[in-house]
Design a protein around this nucleic acid. Sequence first.
DNA 1: CGGAATCCATAGGGATACTG
DNA 2: CAGTATCCCTATGGATTCCG
Lengths: 109, 109
Amino acid sequence: MMKIDGNCDSGCPVAAAATVFDGKWTSLILRDLMSGTKRYSELQRSLTGISPRMLAARLTMLEEKGLISKTIYPTVPPKTEYTLTESGQRAEAVIMALAAFGATLARPG
Amino acid sequence: MMKIDGNCDSGCPVAAAATVFDGKWTSLILRDLMSGTKRYSELQRSLTGISPRMLAARLTMLEEKGLISKTIYPTVPPKTEYTLTESGQRAEAVIMALAAFGATLARPG
DNA sequence: CGGAATCCATAGGGATACTG
DNA sequence: CAGTATCCCTATGGATTCCG
């Protein structure tokens, strides 16, 4: 069991992870990629209501943070695939924890 | 906040949990409370840079979502304590997962 | 198909000052 | 001490359009 400090301002792993999972779409994108490689349009269809701009921004961020990798097939029409890296697969544990916790919450509405 | 709706219809537990952990401070507050009951001023000192407004807003949200409870001692000077509820203690698993994952990330700076 | 560019409204959130 | 109230700004992010 990992020790967590009550006060680890700089370099706190919780804070570091929180920046990655920031925003309302990130965890949903990772959740979707947990079931395997997906195309841009597949993600867009799955993430109801997300704008192309948002999806592209989150995918870029996740790629920069090293959680996903991008493969471009120079075909016509073009095709791009997104896959979890090893780091992204490690992030699955967070998604699972989120899912388990979320399942215990009372549903609003 | 807007409704989140991904590919597991309108009750996705990941989305539900994501709304609770929204924002940069929430997980840090929960992290702090994991080590025990804390006062408002203790949290403010621990969460370097947070504004009173922000701290109050997040604490109110967490209380409304049922993750923390608030005890007011009508003393002079006044004293308020925040404690994790059972739901909040269930959220510890998410914080632990975040910490474990965050520890594997490359440190910026 | 997979984005990038542009425009624009909203609210998230910081700084400061004040109060019970 | 434990917050509120107020001001104000910027970054977030939606809608739309266009391009390789």
